[in-house]
Design a protein around this nucleic acid. Structure first.
Lengths: 201, 201
DNA sequence: TTGTTAGTTGACTGGTTGGATAAGTTGATT
DNA sequence: AATCAACTTATCCAACCAGTCAACTAACAA
């Protein structure tokens, strides 16, 4: 083996952060390299294009985040509580980001997805996949809640689709209005959408 | 007064279309000028920056669209039917766009809003304003439905917020998944969210 | 110690960007 | 027909962009 380095990891991390805070189009390869303290040549040693880097960065971010999602949606936890924990997690994530960057950053996958959906098929598919992975958690929680008759829905898949759309739409508006407070409605509204028997703490 | 021209209008129209079909960042001033068949100098005669053009273009688009919205939400029409008409309108608009451009284009305001919210305060405020104008229609329809006891909501403003968030989230996902079919769920889900007594045609 | 592999460097290319302007043309008003 | 604001044209530029490359260096294995 030859020498090793953390340049690739730094590029992935910096790219994800910069794109989340700004947008895909507003961030240049030079900028990413500069902030990651990596030379342009090294960038092209590891990645073919900016889109390749972005796709890899989003995959890495998902893998880093997955254990947290597994914890939140643990089968140990009652299904409706999983959902309200998930809402808390979203709120907290956005709050931390907002304090650090001075504005609501929204859902990183959805932002890039919307920006590039009509322009880059690979990126579109990747964001589609990531959103699907996320909403699977929601779906399984709703399915279990239905089995336990905690919830009044016909098809868990459809219900998850509705809940997840609402969450994405709320995040989108929170970003555009730059208003964290909006996200406090997430949990109660979701419970109401599901016809939950009782509000969970 | 000096001479007149339609260069400004052409720029506004072309800018809106190009940005909707692609994204703000992916469209250059040169590109807009070329497609509008207008020279760069003329562009700078009418607008100071690309962001100024975009803001003006979105305002013009809204004004063109407003009569249609007034028609859809006419007080002549029963309030719940207004909402289902609105859903049809969204579906039709997206369908036409998709057939023309080969992909779902989503909500033009939300797309640009999400892309530039953290980068350009003026654009952020403009998209916020446009989204507010749109959701006002929804709110008034829900308020009237409540007065007529067609609907089971406590606060019309909150309910409108929920309905509108869901619609935006669904449009967002339809764009990312490039799937028009998703939008067919819009009307029935909204009626269910509002606890409507009966499904309206 | 020497060969091989993996990673690094930074200057370079050639095209595009937003932004600017000077000089010219047009046409409604007087 | 004279006036002058409104508009057009062609061109410019510095900054920035993605992408290339050949020379270089560090780590490991034999």
């Amino acid at each position: 083996m030859g020498r090793t380095s953390d340049a690739k990891d730094k590029l992935l991390q910096v790219a994800f952060d910069l794109i989340w805070d700004n947008s895909y189009g507003a961030v240049s390869i030079d900028q990413i390299c500069q902030k990651a303290d990596v030379n342009k040549g090294s960038f092209y040693h590891f990645f073919r294009t900016k889109a390749d880097l972005a796709i890899a960065a989003y995959e890495v971010h998902w893998r880093q985040k997955q254990p947290e999602m597994d914890r939140i949606f643990s089968p140990q936890v009652p299904p409706l509580e999983r959902l309200s924990r998930w809402c808390d997690y979203i709120y907290q994530t956005q709050k931390v980001k907002a304090e650090k960057y001075g504005h609501i950053c929204g859902c990183p996958y959805a932002s890039v997805g919307v920006e590039l959906a009509t322009q880059d098929e690979k990126v579109r598919r990747k964001t589609e996949e990531l959103i699907e992975r996320n909403s699977k958690y929601v779906e399984s929680a709703i399915a279990e809640a239905k089995r336990e008759e905690l919830v009044c829905v016909t098809d868990p898949r459809t219900a998850a689709q509705q809940v997840y759309s609402y969450a994405l739409g709320l995040l989108l508006q929170a970003k555009i209005r730059n208003d964290l407070k909006m996200l406090r409605n997430l949990a109660p509204t979701i419970m109401k959408m599901l016809g939950a028997k009782e509000v969970v703490a």
